[in-house]
Protein backbone atom coordinates (compact mmCIF):
# COMPACT_ATOMS: atom_id res chain seq x y z
CA UNK A 1 0.00 0.00 0.00
CA UNK A 2 1.38 3.40 -0.94
CA UNK A 3 1.77 6.12 1.59
CA UNK A 4 -0.64 9.06 1.30
CA UNK A 5 -0.39 12.42 3.01
CA UNK A 6 -2.42 11.03 5.93
CA UNK A 7 0.04 8.20 6.27
CA UNK A 8 2.94 10.68 6.28
CA UNK A 9 1.24 12.76 8.97
CA UNK A 10 0.57 9.68 11.09
CA UNK A 11 4.21 8.70 10.67
CA UNK A 12 5.31 12.15 11.83
CA UNK A 13 3.26 11.77 14.98
CA UNK A 14 4.94 8.45 15.57
CA UNK A 15 8.35 10.06 15.06
CA UNK A 16 7.52 12.79 17.55
CA UNK A 17 6.34 10.24 20.11
CA UNK A 18 9.59 8.33 19.70
CA UNK A 19 11.75 11.41 20.00
CA UNK A 20 9.93 12.55 23.14
CA UNK A 21 10.12 9.06 24.64
CA UNK A 22 13.87 8.87 23.96
CA UNK A 23 14.64 12.48 24.87
CA UNK A 24 16.58 11.62 28.01
CA UNK A 25 18.47 8.79 26.36
CA UNK A 26 19.59 11.13 23.59
CA UNK A 27 20.52 13.82 26.10
CA UNK A 28 22.57 11.23 27.95
CA UNK A 29 24.39 10.09 24.81
CA UNK A 30 25.15 13.72 23.92
CA UNK A 31 26.32 14.50 27.44
CA UNK A 32 28.91 11.76 27.12
CA UNK A 33 30.60 13.06 23.97
CA UNK A 34 28.89 16.35 23.18
CA UNK A 35 26.97 19.04 25.00
CA UNK A 36 23.90 17.18 26.19
CA UNK A 37 21.24 18.89 24.15
CA UNK A 38 20.47 16.52 21.26
CA UNK A 39 17.36 15.00 22.85
CA UNK A 40 16.12 18.43 23.89
CA UNK A 41 16.84 19.89 20.44
CA UNK A 42 14.87 17.21 18.59
CA UNK A 43 12.04 17.28 21.12
CA UNK A 44 11.73 21.05 20.70
CA UNK A 45 11.84 20.62 16.93
CA UNK A 46 9.33 17.81 16.42
CA UNK A 47 6.96 19.19 19.03
CA UNK A 48 6.98 22.45 17.07
CA UNK A 49 6.37 20.48 13.88
CA UNK A 50 3.22 18.93 15.30
CA UNK A 51 2.09 22.33 16.58
CA UNK A 52 2.66 23.77 13.10
CA UNK A 53 0.44 21.09 11.53
CA UNK A 54 -2.25 21.70 14.13
CA UNK A 55 -2.27 25.39 13.18
CA UNK A 56 -1.69 25.25 9.44
CA UNK A 57 -4.04 24.12 6.72
CA UNK A 58 -3.65 20.44 6.08
CA UNK A 59 -0.92 20.10 3.43
CA UNK A 60 -2.01 18.42 0.23
CA UNK A 61 1.01 16.25 -0.61
CA UNK A 62 3.75 14.34 1.19
CA UNK A 63 6.24 16.77 -0.36
CA UNK A 64 4.45 19.72 1.21
CA UNK A 65 4.56 17.94 4.55
CA UNK A 66 8.30 17.36 4.26
CA UNK A 67 8.89 20.99 3.38
CA UNK A 68 6.98 22.29 6.39
CA UNK A 69 8.86 19.82 8.59
CA UNK A 70 12.13 21.09 7.14
CA UNK A 71 11.49 24.80 7.69
CA UNK A 72 10.09 24.19 11.17
CA UNK A 73 13.10 22.11 12.21
CA UNK A 74 15.47 24.72 10.78
CA UNK A 75 13.79 27.56 12.66
CA UNK A 76 13.35 25.82 16.01
CA UNK A 77 16.14 23.29 16.55
CA UNK A 78 19.39 25.21 16.16
CA UNK A 79 22.65 23.40 16.82
CA UNK A 80 24.07 20.99 14.28
CA UNK A 81 20.91 18.89 14.20
CA UNK A 82 18.62 21.72 13.06
CA UNK A 83 20.22 22.46 9.69
CA UNK A 84 21.13 18.79 9.10
CA UNK A 85 17.73 17.22 9.80
CA UNK A 86 16.15 20.26 8.15
CA UNK A 87 18.21 19.77 5.01
CA UNK A 88 17.35 16.06 4.98
CA UNK A 89 13.62 16.82 4.94
CA UNK A 90 14.05 19.66 2.43
CA UNK A 91 15.86 17.40 -0.02
CA UNK A 92 13.29 14.65 0.57
CA UNK A 93 10.59 17.17 -0.31
CA UNK A 94 12.30 17.99 -3.59
CA UNK A 95 12.83 14.31 -4.36
CA UNK A 96 9.16 13.37 -4.00
CA UNK A 97 7.96 16.42 -5.90
CA UNK A 98 4.20 16.78 -6.32
CA UNK A 99 3.42 13.08 -5.86
CA UNK A 100 0.17 12.59 -3.96
CA UNK A 101 1.37 9.34 -2.45
CA UNK A 102 4.71 7.59 -2.05
CA UNK A 103 5.58 4.14 -3.28
CA UNK A 104 8.64 2.19 -2.23
CA UNK A 105 10.82 3.71 -4.93
CA UNK A 106 9.94 7.27 -4.01
CA UNK A 107 10.68 6.52 -0.38
CA UNK A 108 14.11 5.23 -1.33
CA UNK A 109 14.69 8.25 -3.55
CA UNK A 110 13.73 10.55 -0.68
CA UNK A 111 16.23 8.85 1.61
CA UNK A 112 18.97 9.06 -1.00
CA UNK A 113 18.30 12.78 -1.45
CA UNK A 114 18.33 13.24 2.30
CA UNK A 115 21.77 11.63 2.71
CA UNK A 116 23.21 13.62 -0.17
CA UNK A 117 21.87 16.83 1.36
CA UNK A 118 23.29 16.08 4.79
CA UNK A 119 26.69 15.22 3.35
CA UNK A 120 26.71 18.37 1.21
CA UNK A 121 25.91 20.51 4.25
CA UNK A 122 27.93 18.81 6.96
CA UNK A 123 30.84 17.42 4.92
CA UNK A 124 30.92 14.26 6.99
CA UNK A 125 31.91 10.97 5.38
CA UNK A 126 30.83 7.56 6.60
CA UNK A 127 33.06 6.55 9.48
CA UNK A 128 33.25 10.07 10.91
CA UNK A 129 30.88 9.03 13.71
CA UNK A 130 27.88 11.16 12.77
CA UNK A 131 24.30 10.58 11.75
CA UNK A 132 25.63 9.88 8.26
CA UNK A 133 26.76 6.50 9.63
CA UNK A 134 23.10 5.65 10.13
CA UNK A 135 21.53 7.51 7.24
CA UNK A 136 23.87 6.41 4.44
CA UNK A 137 23.48 2.64 4.98
CA UNK A 138 19.75 3.24 5.46
CA UNK A 139 19.50 4.87 2.05
CA UNK A 140 21.48 2.04 0.44
CA UNK A 141 19.30 -0.61 2.07
CA UNK A 142 16.19 1.28 0.97
CA UNK A 143 17.43 1.39 -2.61
CA UNK A 144 18.07 -2.33 -2.61
CA UNK A 145 14.68 -3.10 -1.06
CA UNK A 146 12.97 -0.82 -3.58
CA UNK A 147 14.23 -2.98 -6.47
CA UNK A 148 12.10 -5.88 -5.20
CA UNK A 149 8.86 -6.21 -7.22
CA UNK A 150 6.00 -4.26 -5.61
CA UNK A 151 8.18 -3.04 -2.79
CA UNK A 152 5.93 -1.22 -0.33
CA UNK A 153 7.00 1.88 1.62
CA UNK A 154 6.70 -0.28 4.74
CA UNK A 155 9.16 -2.83 3.38
CA UNK A 156 11.60 -0.20 2.15
CA UNK A 157 11.49 1.65 5.48
CA UNK A 158 11.89 -1.59 7.43
CA UNK A 159 15.08 -2.32 5.52
CA UNK A 160 16.26 1.26 6.04
CA UNK A 161 15.52 1.17 9.75
CA UNK A 162 17.42 -2.08 10.22
CA UNK A 163 20.43 -0.72 8.36
CA UNK A 164 20.30 2.53 10.34
CA UNK A 165 20.22 0.63 13.61
CA UNK A 166 23.21 -1.46 12.58
CA UNK A 167 24.99 1.65 11.36
CA UNK A 168 24.31 3.51 14.58
CA UNK A 169 25.56 0.58 16.67
CA UNK A 170 28.71 0.54 14.58
CA UNK A 171 29.55 4.12 15.58
CA UNK A 172 30.43 2.96 19.09
CA UNK A 173 34.11 2.11 18.49
CA UNK A 174 34.70 5.00 16.09
CA UNK A 175 36.75 8.13 16.84
CA UNK A 176 34.69 11.18 15.90
CA UNK A 177 36.03 13.40 13.14
CA UNK A 178 33.07 15.77 12.76
CA UNK A 179 30.76 17.59 15.12
CA UNK A 180 31.32 18.37 18.76
CA UNK A 181 32.43 14.84 19.65
CA UNK A 182 35.53 15.33 17.49
CA UNK A 183 36.97 17.64 20.17
CA UNK A 184 37.37 14.61 22.38
CA UNK A 185 39.75 12.88 19.99
CA UNK A 186 40.41 9.30 21.07
CA UNK A 187 38.14 9.74 24.08
CA UNK A 188 35.12 9.78 21.77
CA UNK A 189 35.58 6.06 21.05
CA UNK A 190 33.38 3.69 23.05
CA UNK A 191 30.25 5.84 22.81
CA UNK A 192 27.21 5.68 20.57
CA UNK A 193 26.78 8.80 18.42
CA UNK A 194 23.58 10.60 19.48
CA UNK A 195 22.69 11.76 15.97
CA UNK A 196 23.12 8.27 14.54
CA UNK A 197 20.95 6.92 17.32
CA UNK A 198 18.19 9.48 16.75
CA UNK A 199 18.30 8.82 13.01
CA UNK A 200 17.80 5.10 13.61
CA UNK A 201 14.96 5.82 16.04
CA UNK A 202 13.24 8.09 13.54
CA UNK A 203 13.54 5.55 10.72
CA UNK A 204 12.24 2.79 12.95
CA UNK A 205 9.22 4.95 13.88
CA UNK A 206 8.56 5.64 10.21
CA UNK A 207 8.82 1.93 9.36
CA UNK A 208 6.51 0.88 12.16
CA UNK A 209 3.98 3.55 11.29
CA UNK A 210 4.04 2.54 7.60
CA UNK A 211 3.54 -1.15 8.40
CA UNK A 212 0.68 -0.39 10.80
CA UNK A 213 -0.97 1.71 8.11
CA UNK A 214 -0.46 -1.09 5.59
CA UNK A 215 -2.35 -3.44 7.91
CA UNK A 216 -5.25 -1.00 7.86
CA UNK A 217 -7.02 0.69 10.77
CA UNK A 218 -6.66 -1.10 14.11
CA UNK A 219 -9.17 -3.95 14.51
CA UNK A 220 -10.06 -3.90 10.78
CA UNK A 221 -7.80 -6.83 9.85
Amino acid sequence: MDCTVDGVLAALRAVTDTVVAHRDELVGLDRAIGDGDHGENLTRGFTSVLAKFADADQPGTPGQVFKLVATTLISTVGGAAGPLFGTAFLRAATAVGEASSLDGELVAAALRAAVDGVVARGKAAEGDKTLVDALAPAARAAETAATEPNATPAAVLAAAAQAAEDGAEATVPLVARKGRASYLGERSAGHLDPGARSTALILRALATSASTAAQGPAGAR
Partner: peptide, 11 residues
Protein backbone atom coordinates in the same frame (compact mmCIF):
# COMPACT_ATOMS: atom_id res chain seq x y z
CA UNK B 1 21.12 33.96 21.69
CA UNK B 2 20.21 30.35 21.02
CA UNK B 3 18.84 27.90 23.55
CA UNK B 4 21.35 27.08 26.29
CA UNK B 5 24.49 25.70 24.62
CA UNK B 6 22.64 25.46 21.28
CA UNK B 7 23.40 27.71 18.34
CA UNK B 8 20.69 30.11 17.24
CA UNK B 9 18.51 29.34 14.25
CA UNK B 10 18.89 31.01 10.85
CA UNK B 11 15.73 33.10 11.19
Amino acid sequence: PGAVFTSPTPD
